[in-house]
């Protein structure tokens, strides 16, 4: 980035005033002087990013080839953690459960969010009110919401069972059923983040010029056709963003799942997703090397999916207008 003339003058002026001021020894070179000026601003975040982000990422990779029990020395383990997580911890199953959760979560979440956004994208009374109302769960503490929902889906005559009983339906055991536990978790998650995703689609729809719809209307295109031929193609980049962030988020699901199912991965191992397994293997089982290997596995899967989605949408046309 090129400096403007005034900026240069200002920089030189400040440098000169430091030079003639109290500090007699100022480095000669321009780069060193600039660095000295920026360091007080940069240091805290640099320490934070290095210590709590960069080093951990490198370290998790190293740790996945070592054993550590939470105290004492690290021992080199070679590929043992990696074989253990597949042979003994059944990481392949956890990966499958994680994928199942993502599959339960993403398509329904995306379709509902888009549908709500289309409904609210009208010039009618009260639309702003409903947008706010639907967004309310977004900030709500997932752990607290999970608890409330676990009470609603309690097999001991929780609200869900009582509600179904009004129609003469006998509800399943919900969270203590290995068939229903995961759909309930996905449902709670959809409930919590639907409004959030809706807002992205809403913003995307608002950005589409109304002249396009007017032109389509003159040509006699139905509302349905306008949605498929105008709205959806023009929401391509929004769709990419929503899908990538949702998939990344779903792969990391923890809080809601932990509270709804008690954090054991049960019933059976039907809700043992990778993130929960990292917690259970590492912090409950104190096998940190294996937990690190599971973390690297999860990171790899997330990266793969993000890149895949990006490429898929990149190959389709994106429309820009301003």
């Amino acid at each position: 980035m090129a400096l403007t003339a005034t900026e240069k003058a200002a920089t030189a002026g400040v440098a000169r005033s430091i030079g003639t001021g109290r500090r007699p020894k100022v480095p000669r070179s321009k780069g060193a002087r600039e660095l000295l000026r920026a360091l007080p601003f940069l240091t805290p975040s640099l320490v934070g990013v290095l210590l709590f982000l960069v080093i951990p990422v490198v370290f998790v990779l190293v740790l996945s080839f070592m054993t550590w029990s939470g105290a004492g020395p690290f021992k080199w383990a070679g590929l043992q953690n990696w074989t253990n997580i597949f042979l003994f911890d059944n990481a392949a199953h956890s990966l499958g459960v994680t994928a199942y959760y993502v599959l339960l979560n993403i398509p329904l979440q995306t379709v509902l969010a888009l549908g709500l956004a289309v409904m609210l994208n009208r010039k009618r009374r009260g639309m702003a009110f409903f947008r706010v109302l639907y967004l309310a769960p977004y900030l709500s503490t997932p752990v607290a919401m999970g608890l409330i929902w676990s009470w609603v889906f309690d097999p001991r005559q929780g609200a869900a069972d009582r509600f179904l009983a009004l129609f003469g339906i006998h509800g399943p055991a919900w969270l203590s059923s290995s068939l229903w536990a995961m759909p309930v978790v996905a449902g709670v998650n959809i409930w919590q983040f639907l409004g959030f995703n809706m807002l992205f689609f809403y913003a995307g729809l608002q950005a589409i010029p109304s002249s396009l719809y007017e032109a389509a209307q003159l040509d006699g295109a139905s509302k349905w056709r306008q949605f498929w031929r105008i709205s959806l193609p023009l929401l391509n980049s929004t769709m990419l963003f929503v899908l990538i962030t949702d998939v990344i988020g779903s792969f990391q699901v923890f809080d809601t799942l932990y509270v709804l199912t008690g954090g054991t991965g049960g019933p059976g191992d039907s809700t043992q997703v990778l993130s929960l397994q990292i917690y259970n293997v590492g912090f409950q089982g104190t096998r940190y090397g294996e937990a690190a290997a599971l973390s690297v596995l999860l990171f790899g899967v997330i990266l793969l999916f993000s890149v895949g989605q990006f490429l898929f949408f990149k190959n389709r046309t994106t429309y820009e207008f301003s």
């Binding site: 920026a38 990013v49 960069v54 370290f59 998790v60 990292i278």
Partner: peptide, 27 residues
């Protein structure tokens, strides 16, 4: 401000945005 390595450091910061929280819990 202008200083040597500014864009490189900023790029490093942006890269760390890709790291999911759960991955760094153990380290």
């Amino acid at each position: 401000l202008t200083f040597p390595g500014r864009d490189g450091i900023f790029w490093l910061y942006l890269c760390t945005l890709m790291v999911p929280n759960i991955v760094t819990i153990v380290p």
